[in-house]
């Protein structure tokens, strides 16, 4: 039995090493003055300085953050409304149809979403750039928010709403004083998921970004296609620290809502 445990632990350790090795490999060589991802020469901050002096890159980081925050905020509002709409629908046939339509974008591969949005924006005459990227990010984040909020609504006892109504609450009061406080953990979880999906997205953005506007993922892709440049490593270290902060935030919120929500299968 004891021997079993050692093998089990060994297996888990190997899995964890493989999962984290590439990330730490990137970070380690971000300090290499040699300029390559092998043969560590001497320690240097050079690549970090390069990142902070690269105005183009900093603007792209800013773009990415603005897109992520805006799209997460807007998709949270639309998603909460969607969850309420689905919650209020009483016929199961309509409910299932709405849920099925909701899930289409979650199970669709990114290239299909990207290609179809590219056609959509071209036909609608939306110029490819900030607006098209923002709209696409809102579009693919809405269903995730709905799926995070809906279980919370279903959990809520309907007698709460009845009680509020009996006590004379208006629709607005019912929403702001009863429903929203109850579903807050779901709303935050949805917002965070939307944020991470937006920050992480590459394929959809790549299709609808056009010339002149770029997000971080697209920029990393075009730089990586030209080969290894250690400023990407430096950037990834900075991003990893930033994400770790986000994850800690998300963890505390999901602890509050008692359960780690499923991380959808996109990408």
């Amino acid at each position: 039995m004891k021997k079993h445990r050692t093998w089990a632990n060994l297996y888990l350790i190997v899995v964890f090493i493989i999962l984290y090795m590439p990330i730490f490999y990137l970070m380690y060589y971000s300090f290499n003055s040699g300029g390559t991802m092998h043969n560590f020469k001497t320690f240097t901050w050079e690549w970090y300085q390069e990142v902070f002096h690269d105005d183009r890159l900093l603007i792209i980081v800013l773009n990415t953050l603005v897109i992520a925050l805006l799209s997460a905020a807007i998709s949270t509002v639309v998603g909460v409304m969607g969850a309420l709409a689905i919650y209020y629908v009483k016929t199961w046939r309509v409910k299932n149809a709405l849920l099925a339509l909701n899930n289409v974008l979650i199970v669709s591969p990114d290239v299909i979403i990207g290609a179809s949005f590219l056609i959509l924006f071209t036909i609608a005459g939306v110029k490819l750039g900030f607006i098209s990227v923002l709209l696409s990010h809102i579009a693919f984040s809405v269903p995730i928010v709905v799926l995070m909020v809906l279980p919370k609504l279903e959990e809520m006892s309907p007698t709460l709403i009845d009680a509020a109504r009996d006590l004379g609450a208006s629709q607005w009061h019912m929403l702001s004083k009863v429903i929203l406080p109850f579903i807050t953990p779901g709303v935050f979880a949805g917002f965070f998921m939307a944020l991470t999906y937006s920050l992480d997205d590459f394929a959809v953005t790549f299709f609808v970004t056009g010339n002149g506007f770029s997000t971080l993922s697209v920029e990393i892709y075009s730089r990586a296609r030209q080969g290894i440049s250690l400023s990407i490593n430096a950037l990834s270290t900075l991003l990893f620290l930033f994400t770790a902060l986000l994850v800690v935030g998300y963890y505390f919120i999901s602890q509050k809502s008692s359960r780690l929500y499923g991380i959808g299968g996109r990408k």
Binding site: F16, L19, Y20, M21, P22, I23, Y25, L26, Y29, M37, H38, T196, L199, D200, F202, L216, S217, I220, Y221, A224, G227, I228, I232, S236, L239, F240, T243, A244, L246, V247, L260, I263, K267
Partner: peptide, 20 residues
């Protein structure tokens, strides 16, 4: 800890393998 790497940009992970 298993989920944490999914928060690292996919392209960065792919890029790391260019080096490895």
């Amino acid at each position: 800890l298993i989920i944490l790497p999914t928060w690292v940009n996919l392209l960065l992970k792919v890029y790391a393998f260019l080096g490895i």
